[in-house]
């Protein structure tokens, strides 16, 4: 196999599947997921718990349990700063360690559990710098101070000496972001980075990430279950259900006119900031997300789908179809559904 072509993308994931070994046999958590992210672009990965969105990102970072406990198939082609393209699923662990925290950075939901509670935040950021750059401690600490200031922490010099428990949740997430930016990553994977934060602080962090992206041109993969956040931050969105991509496209079309009944249901279920006379029942999706060990035959969403046709949707697993303008949908009846949805 020659050097793979990935055009302009920073990350090009092709046919990624992830299966975990369990005592009852392998359980597939992610099936045949393909997507790309370009420099300066934000791709949102949306789905409910168990949809496979976090597993997808962990697999790309090679942070799933090692083989044979996890089986990874497919490719995750990453373009380095020097232009070389490597398959993250195939490089040796040593090379992967050199990439993590360097050219690919990751931030998580709960900053308290990701930070070392007994190390000063300045030292933690400096360590991230020294791991990947040939600099001494003093220089690394200067860089840490600069990074703290850049993520909007006032009095950065003094904050270098703070321990994580001295800081609020929002400040800790800023420290995590500073650490992630330590080596100017080309790709930032953010897994629910604002979910544990208050709305006022969430708004600050989203704004910060957008500013930093404008400055650095990094690509962001933003994992979230919050469709409001998607609308705020994403250029493109990928909706996952039961381990598969069920819809993807530009954020505008997908959120304004979703084609997949699951996306439609999700968007309707989000309560909007309005007032009504008396309680109007919220639109819910009946049932629950199927267990990965007991996926229904055919379309995984069929048991909950208002448009499901017996004999069709419960018999055939739908492919990911190209609809229009790069929008893709996994539904056998998407054109019929679109016609039904368009009716007043």
């Amino acid at each position: 196999m020659g050097a793979p072509e990935i055009a302009t993308a920073v990350l090009d994931v092709r046919n990624l599947s992830v299966a975990f070994a369990t005592h009852t046999g392998p359980v597939a958590a992610v099936h045949d997921v393909s997507f790309t992210v370009a420099p300066g672009e934000t791709l949102a990965l949306v789905g409910e718990s168990g949809s496979g969105k976090s597993v997808t990102s962990l697999a790309v970072m090679r942070l799933t349990p090692p083989a044979p406990r996890t089986r990874l198939d497919g490719q995750a082609l990453f373009r380095s700063r020097d232009g070389t393209v490597r398959d993250l699923l195939a490089v040796p662990e040593r090379a992967m360690r050199a990439l993590r925290g360097n050219e690919i950075a990751m931030i998580f939901q709960e900053p308290m559990t990701s930070l070392n509670p007994v190390q000063r935040v300045g030292d933690q950021i400096a360590e991230a710098v020294m791991t990947h750059r040939p600099v001494g401690r003093r220089e690394a600490l200067d860089r840490a101070e600069h990074l703290l200031a850049r993520v909007g922490i006032s009095d950065a010099r003094r904050r270098l000496a703070a321990f994580p428990h001295h800081l609020s949740g929002g400040m800790r997430q800023r420290v995590m972001i500073a650490m992630a930016l330590a080596c100017d990553p080309a790709l930032l994977i953010a897994d629910e980075p604002t979910t544990a934060l208050d709305v006022t602080v969430q708004a600050q962090i989203l704004e910060l990430l957008q500013d930093l992206q404008r400055e650095t041109g990094m690509a962001i993969v933003f994992i979230t279950h919050n469709l409001g956040v998607v609308a705020e931050i994403a250029d493109r969105v990928m909706v996952m259900y039961a381990g598969r991509i069920v819809e993807q496209g530009e954020v505008g079309p997908v959120m304004r006119a979703p084609l997949m009944p699951y996306t439609q249901g999700l968007l309707r279920a989000v309560p909007t900031l309005t007032v009504s006379d008396g309680f109007v029942p919220l639109t819910s999706i009946p049932g629950t997300v199927p267990s990965p060990t007991a996926l229904p035959p055919g379309c995984a969403f069929e048991p909950r789908c208002p448009y499901a046709l017996p004999g069709l949707c419960d018999a055939t697993t739908p492919p990911l179809d190209d609809a229009f303008d790069g929008q893709q949908v996994r539904c056998l009846r998407w054109d019929a559904v679109a016609a039904l949805e368009a009716r007043p």
């Binding site: 708004a203 989203l206 704004e207 609308a231 505008g252 968007l267």
Partner: peptide, 25 residues
């Protein structure tokens, strides 16, 4: 006012200028 303004709205055409509160509680 600031609390309302910070709520993300699931409509990309309504990205608006929000009132960002400084700092934390």
């Amino acid at each position: 006012e600031a609390l309302f303004s910070a709520v993300p709205v699931a409509d990309p055409s309504r990205r608006r200028q929000r009132i960002l509160l400084k700092g934390d509680l």
